[in-house]
Structures are given as structure tokens and as C-alpha cells.
Design a protein around this nucleic acid. Structure first.
Lengths: 343, 343
DNA sequence: ATTAGCACTCGTGAACAAAGAGTGCTAACA
DNA sequence: TGTTAGCACTCTTTGTTCACGAGTGCTAAT
């Protein structure tokens, strides 16, 4: 295993590189306060650290930079949680300062603040509507041919979709449909609606309405949209200021992935509760080669709701970002629980 | 004024530069089919064109590139509308191929297709809800303290907002409020709602409901959101492939503006009906120095609804972009009119 | 009026040198 | 035996020079 001195040197290398983005050499290290031995000694230790795979050179006679394995070790063993300062805390609190009740808005604000505090790109996976319970379904006819179906969940999420009305349906029929739907489906988890719709509601509709199956499909369609969680971003352009992204090709790759959303969604979706850290190629995504992704989950009560994440260069201020994510996700969970639990 | 020969030379310069992004010299020009005089002659003419401000050099002995004034002249006098090919038309038609009824979705698809066809960034200013008429207001209580207000317009736009309920309000009261609101406001333009709310509805509410003015403000708030049009983008990263944006600083400026939306909104909002072209500094925006913005409006019947635009480098394929915008905006208007007029 | 010819300018890319930052290794030291 | 000073070596960076090519403007001939 690593000696104490190796650990110290390694830690200083990582900390310095995170700050300067420059390979750090033995001379630079020997001048640091924490370090009291000569550059030659450091060179020997660095050779060992390199052999172990924790650091690498960019060319034969360059200083060293942490390898992905190095970052992984750093994150797993050396990280000391950073205490947030007054200003950070104030900014985080400001997310909830205004009286906002919509879940989505709160989450969106969180993304914005998070990106401002870190200067990285923040990503928030919106509340999963899947587990929400249906509060109410409404259908509002716009004209003879089209109507709009509106679904309201217990957390106040509203989803709507237009659809074609079957011919010859009258207002009374429509009201009947709505009543049946609410009767049978209110309180059921959104996820289960489709199933219930076809199993329980279909029979009832058939008894009361002509042309019932046209309606049925339209309603099923409407319900389905809700299944996907929304992604919110903050500071999409922050990465452009990072020196590792002076290369347009890298920028293009990354931005393309961000714009497509699908890739990001996959990366963020599958994470477990709590803090997760994926470094560089651990993300299994070529556009993320020089990036790390740190995610944290937020919840209402014990029910995991969504994910909040930071995308930055592998040379990221892990300590600060983790502290921030920890703090924000806890705050977010607390506020949301207070607002929505057993409402 | 310009002689025919100067015009010819100028046109060929612009066309060539638009295609290659390289300054074009007299030798290159003399080899073109359209041009039958020697490079020396061309040099003389170019000197004149430069004196007139239509073209410029990048350095003393470079070829020429069109100036902003040059592009302006080109656009105003030399542009021949390009005939769209089969593939383009097919793609445009595909916007409306699926049965979509939501205005916003159609508009969003248009943005996507437009950016794919041009390889530039497309921007669509969504339908102005301001002129929509109110179809229905609904209020759904979520729990004792909060309720959600939902506004539906005659075009099927749905806007919703959560608000705090006053203490001690019961379901009956709420129903009364909703009835009054729909009674008095249905059919009124969204723009006028606020006014009407305070002038006509307030009195009625006072007669029937305790604590009415808390409700009043909440509802007024909800109504207000609808006033801003939404922006949709397509191909945000396309600009990264343009050679003029190999400079990270320029990219950063432009992307920042796009991310903030406010700047774009201002640029697009104030345009007149039909096609508008703003070249480089005509946009009055430092981030747009190397960009041109072409906008077209779309409408339902005679009522202007929104704007559809292309953001590209000043060295843009004006002819093609204009033809496309013209075609799409006409199609869009036609389809929307059919769907929503006198619904 | 047009064009051939020529001198001149500027950007580009290659080749080269000097400086600086860093390394690895060896030998001396405590 | 662990530490360090010293040195040769490597590689990047920066600046300089040079030759080349693309282009121009001007003059003189057609």
C-alpha cells in the first residue's frame, strides 16, 4: 500500500492540478508548505506513484497529472468534505426564498444556482411522475373535433394533450367518460393507469359510450407522456471556460450529447440513492472522456424522486461539489417533503 | 452605380465565399466559367468594389471577402430565390406528417427540421398566447392548503400554476369562484384577463367569498405567466461546425446569448411580418458580430402568431435559407389555420 | 479599354536554436 | 539505509529566419 509520504505527495499533486490545470513537477511540490523534503525525494516517490498507476506524465519530461485511477483513489480515500461558506449557504437558501410551489420550478432553480456556485454544468432529473398518484383527469372540448385531456397528479404536476374526438359525441357523453375515469382512476399511481384503463375502465366505457375505443386510445396516449422525467440544465456553457475544452472537437462532442438529452438521461437515470461519482471513462461514453459526473438523489420522505448532478472536467473540485450536492439535495428533500408529504 | 461587370464579379465573389469561407482572389475568379476577362481586369474592378465598400481584404495582399454592406447589397439586389429540391420539400412536409394537434409541438418540430435542413441554428418564437381567447379556467385543490389553477385557451394551450388557498375555504366556495371566473372571462383574450379580473370579477367575488382578495391575486398571478412567448431552438451546436467559430471566445459569447434567451427574444420579437434579414452588426449585439439572423412570421388567418428564424454566420446561404423559411412559414400558417381557425 | 508583366506584401509552414521545466540516475551524505 | 545534491538528458515552448505561394497594385504594351 501507499506510505504516508506517498499519500501526502499524491494529495498535493491532485489538489494543485485541480486548481491550476497544469502538470505539477517535483520542484513546484518541494516549495509547498506541507512538504519538507527535497525535489529529488519527491521525484523518487513520484516514480513509484506512476508505477502504481495513480499519476501520469503528459510527455517524457513533464510534470505529473492524476490518472483516472488516481482520481478514483483520491475520491474514495483522501477526500475531506469541504465546509461550505456563508455565501454558498445563502445562495442555496435563496432557492427556496421565493414562495414557489411547483415542484418543477424549484428543481429548475436548483439547477441554475448549482451551476452558478460551481461554474460547472448542472443537470437535474425532474421528479419522476411515474410514482405520483392521479388527482384528477379532465377533458375540455375545444371544438367539434378536438378536445384536450388534462391530467393532474397529487404533487401538482399537470400534463396535457390534445386529441381528436370521435364523431357524434355529445357533451353529456364526455362528462360521463370523465366521471368514469375519475371514479376508477383517482388515487392510482400514474404508472398503473394504462393497465387499469384497459382492464377496468374499458368495460365501463363500452357500456355507456359509442365509439368508446377511439376515446380509450386517445386517453391512453395522453397518460403515456407522463412516464418520462424531464431534464433541466444550468450553465451549459460553463464547460467552455475550462481549459481542457479549448479544443473545439471536444466541445462539439460534449455539447451534442447535452443537446440530444438521451445520452445524459441514460447516464443520470441509473444511479443509486446518495452520492455517486463517475470519473472519465467510468461513464462509458466517449463524449465524457474528460468529464466526471457526480450525482445525488433527492426525495420526498423515503421515496426517491429525482436526481441532481454536476458535470465537470475530471479535474473537478470534487470536495466542493460533493459538499454542495449533499447540502442541496438534503435541503431540497426537506423542503419538498414539507410541501408535499401527506398533503 | 455598379456596372454590369462589377455586379457579376461581386456576385461571384459572394457566392464563392459563401461556399468556401476563403477570401477569393482575382486568379480564382478568372478561372470561373461565368467570367471571361483576365485577372488584371478583375483586380481593377475589385479595387473599385472595395472603394465602394462592398468587399474587403483580410490583409494587404489577400483575396477579397464581402463586407457587411456587401452582404446587404447582395441580399437586397442580387438574390435569386432558390428552388427547393424534392428532398427538402419532403422533409418539410414530414413536420406535419404525424397527427399532432398541439401547436407547440408542431412549432418545435419545425425548429428541428429547419436546423437539420440548413445546418444552422434555428429559433422559433412560439405562438403568442396573448391573443388567444380563454376557453376555460379550472381550479383543482390538492390538499387543504394548496390548489392548482389551470387555464385553457381556445388554441389548446394549457398553462397552470399552484397557489396557496386561503384558510377556511371549502369546496363549495371554490366551485363558486370557478363558475364566476368562467362565466365572466370565457372568450376574453388572455391579454385582457388581468384587467377584467380586477374590474368585473372582483366585485362578484367579494359578494360570494370570504377572503376573496387573496384568491384574486393568486389567480391574477397565474394568468400573467401566459404573457411570454416560449422560444424553441434546433441545432444549437451546428454553429460549432462553421469555420468562423473555431475561436472558442466567439463560441462562448454566442452560446451564452443563446442560453440566456433574453437577448434572442429581443432580437426576434420586434420583427415585422414577412421575411426580415439582419446582417452582422445590424443586429446591434456584440455576440452577433459574425452572424446573420433571418426571420419569418407565421400566422393563423391574418393574425400573426409567432416567428421562425435562422441564425447563421454572415457568410450564410441566404438564398437557400430564405426559400426554406418562406416555404416552411407558409406551410405552417396553412396547417395551423386549417387546424385552429374558427375551431 | 484590356491585359501581360513585374515588383512588392503578407501569411504559412518548415527548420532551427535557445531557454526552461522537468525527469532519471548516480554518487555523496547523515 | 534513506535522503539529497548534481548532472546529463528529454521534451515543450518560443522566437527567428527563410522560402514559397497567393495575392495585390501599377505600368506599359496591345
Amino acid at each position: 500500500m501507499l506510505t504516508d509520504r506517498q499519500l501526502l505527495i499524491f494529495q498535493v499533486i491532485v489538489d494543485d492540478f485541480i486548481q491550476t490545470a497544469q502538470p505539477v513537477g517535483s520542484r513546484t511540490l518541494s516549495k509547498k508548505e506541507e512538504i519538507s523534503f527535497s525535489s529529488a525525494t519527491i521525484r523518487n516517490e513520484m516514480a513509484d506513484l506512476e508505477e502504481l498507476g495513480f499519476i501520469e506524465k503528459t510527455h517524457t519530461s513533464s510534470g505529473r497529472i492524476p490518472s483516472e485511477k488516481g482520481y478514483r483513489y483520491y475520491v474514495d480515500h483522501l477526500l475531506s468534505p469541504q465546509k461550505l461558506n456563508q455565501h454558498d449557504i445563502f445562495k442555496v437558501k435563496s432557492i427556496f426564498a421565493e414562495r414557489i410551489y411547483e415542484l418543477e420550478k424549484i428543481v429548475q432553480r436548483s439547477a441554475k444556482i448549482l451551476s452558478e456556485l460551481t461554474n460547472y454544468t448542472s443537470i437535474v432529473l425532474g421528479p419522476a411522475v411515474r410514482d405520483n398518484k392521479l388527482k384528477k383527469i379532465q377533458i375540455v372540448p375545444l371544438n367539434k373535433e378536438t378536445a384536450i385531456a388534462i391530467i393532474i397528479t397529487d404533487t401538482g404536476h399537470v400534463e396535457n394533450r390534445m386529441f381528436h374526438l370521435p364523431e357524434n359525441i355529445d357533451a353529456g357523453d364526455l362528462e360521463k367518460v370523465v366521471n368514469i375515469l375519475n371514479d376508477r382512476l383517482a388515487g392510482a399511481p400514474i404508472e398503473s393507469l394504462n393497465n387499469k384503463l384497459y382492464k377496468e375502465v374499458a368495460v365501463l366505457l363500452r357500456q355507456h359510450i359509442n365509439n368508446y375505443d377511439f376515446m380509450l386510445h386517445s386517453i391512453a396516449d395522453t397518460i403515456q407522456i407522463s412516464a418520462y422525467e424531464k431534464l433541466f440544465f444550468g450553465g451549459k456553457t460553463n464547460m467552455l471556460s475550462q481549459p481542457e475544452f479549448h479544443d473545439i472537437e471536444k466541445v462539439k462532442n460534449l455539447m451534442n450529447m447535452i443537446e440530444q438529452e438521451k445520452g445524459i438521461y441514460d447516464l443520470i437515470r441509473k444511479n443509486k440513492a446518495g452520492i455517486n461519482i463517475k470519473i472519465g471513462r467510468e461513464n462509458n461514453n466517449s463524449a465524457m472522456e474528460n468529464c466526471s459526473l457526480i450525482t445525488a438523489s433527492y426525495s420526498i420522505g423515503t421515496e426517491q424522486l429525482g436526481t441532481i448532478a454536476i458535470l465537470g472536467p475530471t479535474r473537478m473540485e470534487y470536495s466542493r461539489v460533493i459538499s454542495l450536492l449533499d447540502y442541496i439535495s438534503a435541503d431540497l428533500s426537506a423542503v419538498l417533503s414539507k410541501l408535499y408529504q401527506n398533503g
